[in-house]
């Protein structure tokens, strides 16, 4: 298996590494960058637990090779809060509505929902459903996740982002 030197901007920081051609992007992020917030649930593209933002769009990092991301930009859950650790409005809303239980799907759920909010702060229920349908959650039944996305959108719209505790 050939090895490749790659350079990926992850959460604003340039990461370099030498990876085998078959190393998935998920494994590179988790094992080489030690960004373990990106989770692996199926490795065949269904569950969405491995979703990261890739050049601004959510993708399945289990279905991409790390070499494919060479020269691109990736945001993982670790890149969602600001540098001082202040939670994003969405993360904060997830805590307010308890939009999680075991937390395993949560990082990727946040990635999917955030990319929706990046497009619109007035998402319809159908748009929320469409965005969240990329991710399976086995714990919550999705209700409180729905509520969190609506709450975050509303707070962002009114500029009344709650200060994270």
């Amino acid at each position: 298996m050939s090895n490749h030197d790659i350079k990926i901007k992850v959460n604003g920081v340039v990461r370099t590494g030498t990876v085998s051609a078959r190393t998935t992007l998920a494994d590179f992020l988790r094992e080489d960058c030690r960004l373990t917030g990106t989770h692996i649930g199926c490795e065949h593209g269904i569950c969405g637990a491995c979703s990261v933002e890739y050049d601004g769009q959510p993708v399945r990092s289990c279905l991409m090779y790390a070499v494919q991301a060479d020269g691109h930009e990736v945001t993982t859950v670790e890149g969602l809060s600001d540098k001082d650790g202040k939670l994003s409005a969405l993360q904060d809303a997830f805590c307010d509505t308890h939009a999680l239980q075991c937390g395993f799907c949560t990082p990727a759920m946040l990635i999917s929902a955030q990319s929706l909010l990046n497009e619109t702060l007035k998402p319809t229920d159908e748009q929320i459903r469409e965005a969240l349908s990329a991710n399976i959650c086995r714990c919550t039944g999705y209700v409180q996740i729905f509520q969190a996305v609506r709450l975050a959108a509303e707070r962002l719209r009114s500029g009344k982002e709650k200060v994270a505790s």
Binding site: G37, T38, L87, C95, L100, C102, P107, L110
Partner: peptide, 16 residues
């Protein structure tokens, strides 16, 4: 009230 656990999970800091 908020739960005690949620914060570490929303920042990807779970310890699986």
């Amino acid at each position: 009230r908020r739960t005690k656990e949620d914060k570490r999970f929303v920042i990807g800091a779970g310890n699986y």
